[in-house]
Simulated assay, not measured.
Amino acid sequence: MHIMEGFLPTPWWQAWFAVSIPVILYGIHKMNRLVNEKREILPLLAVAGAFIFVLSSLKLPSVTGSCSHPTGTGIAAIIFGPAISAVLGTIVLLYQALFLAHGGFTTLGANVFSMGIVGPVAVYLVYKAGMKTKLNFYAVVFLATAFGDWATYVTTSVELALAYPAGGALTFAGFMSSFGKFAAVFAITQLPLAIMEGAVSALLFKYVVNVKSDILVEMKVLEDAVVRKLRGTSA
């Protein structure tokens, strides 16, 4: 991730567009409704988008000519949900493809699906499950964002393995062989990067809880009682 321009053959790059576009359109609908109802949320949307841009632009060398990077989508997924995160991710990926030669236009659908859809969905599900178990909020944020990062790269490995199965023919054995190789390439750098992203995300949420906790309550990220407990206050 990001899959570079022209790397995915037909019909795979078209297929990922077909899967991603409905989610993006739904996310645009949700974002417009949210902004119309809560104009004060615009600065936080901008910050979430900027966070995705900065973290996902930090390309680090992996092996065999590939690279790894954090995704940054976890914060947006927890606050706004996966659909709006997909829109923010699409904007970031489009900008990176246009101005930074990071990713590509034909591979935009695949990159959006892995980083903008699957990753945020994984973050959202882990976060909701973790909060139901009454785990520490910051620990849940750490686990959710780290797992979302890993989910993104597993999905990218799936996309590459489907396009380039071992032996040239798409069979289960060929797919699994290629998937194992792609996943192994990413794992060397992505495992520690995901841990780092989880820690940074937890620290960022600690700051938000201390200075702007009301927005988390309003967006139903946290209950007011949980915020008071985190801040060590009783009122």
Rank of each mutant, 00 (worst) to 15 (best):
V221T: 11
P61A: 08
V23M: 12
F205P: 05
A83V: 03
P43G: 03
F7N: 00
M31L: 12
A225K: 15
A235C: 07
S213A: 15
N111T: 03
F205M: 10
G174E: 13
L25F: 10
F17I: 11
T90R: 09
I75C: 00
G167K: 01
A199I: 14
L170S: 15
T10F: 03
F53C: 05
E159R: 01
W12T: 05
E37Y: 00
P11Y: 12
E218H: 09
Y138H: 12
G168V: 11
M115Q: 08
V140H: 11
A101C: 00
G89N: 00
G103R: 04
A194Q: 08
M1H: 08
F105I: 15
H29L: 13
I117F: 01
G167I: 13
L42T: 09
R228Y: 03
G232F: 13
V87M: 04
F172D: 02
P165D: 09
G180W: 04
P192A: 10
V140N: 12
S157E: 00
L203P: 03
K128M: 01
I52N: 00
T71I: 10
F137Y: 12
F113K: 11
A163C: 11
T152I: 05
M1P: 01
L203D: 08
G109K: 06
F172Q: 07
I117Q: 01
M31T: 07
A77L: 14
V141Q: 04
I28G: 04
Y26L: 10
V158G: 03
W13N: 13
L230R: 11
A235R: 07
I24Q: 12
V208M: 10
Q14C: 00
K212Y: 09
S177K: 07
V35Q: 00
L204G: 08
L34A: 06
F51W: 06
Y164Q: 05
V47C: 00
V92D: 04
P22M: 13
D149Y: 05
L100W: 13
T145I: 14
G74C: 09
A144W: 10
I195R: 00
L191S: 05
F186K: 01
I75A: 04
Y95R: 04
Q190M: 14
L160G: 05
K181G: 07
E223V: 14
K38C: 03
G180Q: 08
L162P: 10
F99I: 12
P9E: 12
M219A: 09
F182E: 06
E218Q: 11
A166E: 12
G167E: 09
Y207S: 05
I215V: 15
F179S: 00
S66V: 07
A50G: 02
N136Y: 13
F17M: 08
K212F: 09
Y138K: 14
R228F: 07
F99T: 14
I24S: 10
E223C: 13
G148E: 14
A129V: 14
W12V: 09
D149C: 07
T90K: 08
Y138F: 15
S62Q: 12
I75L: 09
Y127L: 04
P192I: 11
D224C: 02
Y95G: 04
S234V: 14
A161P: 09
I52W: 00
V112Q: 15
L216Y: 05
E5C: 06
Y207R: 05
L88C: 01
Q96H: 03
A202S: 10
M219Q: 11
F7S: 02
F175G: 02
M1E: 06
V19P: 01
Y164F: 15
